[in-house]
Amino acid sequence: MNRHVAWAALAATFTASAAFAAETAPMDVKFDDAGGVEASLTGQPGDPSKGAEVASTKSLGNCVSCHVVSALDASFQGNIGPELNGAGDRWSEAQLRGIVIDAKHTFEGTVMPGMYKTGPFIRPGDGYTGKAAPADLPPILNAQQVEDVVAFLMTLKEE
C-alpha cells in the first residue's frame, strides 16, 4: 500500500471515531420544555441530500409513509401526519430536531415514532422480522442521519 493512501485511511478512521465520541447517545438527549433539542447530536452539519434519502427510505426514516413531502419524488405518500411542506418556516431547527428524535415530547401521545430512541419499548422486534430485538437494539436512525433529516427539513420553505 502506498504511504499516501495509508495516511488517508488512518485520518478517515480517526475522524469517524472522533465524531462518534462526541455523539449524544439516545438516553442522554436533553429536551427543552417545548420538546425541542438545541444541541446537534454530532456537532457535524447535516447533509440535506442524505436527509432526503433517509426520509423516503422505508428501512430508515420512512417519513413519506405518513407525510406528504412535495420535494421528494417518492410515490404514494401517506397522510397520517400533516404535510411537511414549509416545515422549515413553521419550526425552529431545535424543535425539528426534537420532533425527529422523539416527537412525543412535542405532541403528547402522537403516533409518530421516535427515530432516535432505544427504549423502553413493549416487545421490541428485530426490524420487520417479527422476532425479538437483540439486547443492543439500535435506534431507527443514527445520530448523523437525524442531523441529515433535520437539515433536509430546514430546506422545506413555503415558495
Binding site: S65, F76, Q77, G78, I80, V111, P113, F121, L137
Partner: peptide, 22 residues
C-alpha cells in the same frame, strides 16, 4: 407495541380513512 410504538388503535381507530403509504 414495538419500536414504532403503535397500537391497533393508532392505525385502525385514530387513522382509518387515511393512507399509510399506499
Amino acid at each position: 407495541y414495538g419500536q414504532l410504538e403503535l397500537s391497533c388503535a393508532s392505525c385502525h381507530e385514530e387513522n382509518y380513512g387515511n393512507f399509510i403509504r399506499a
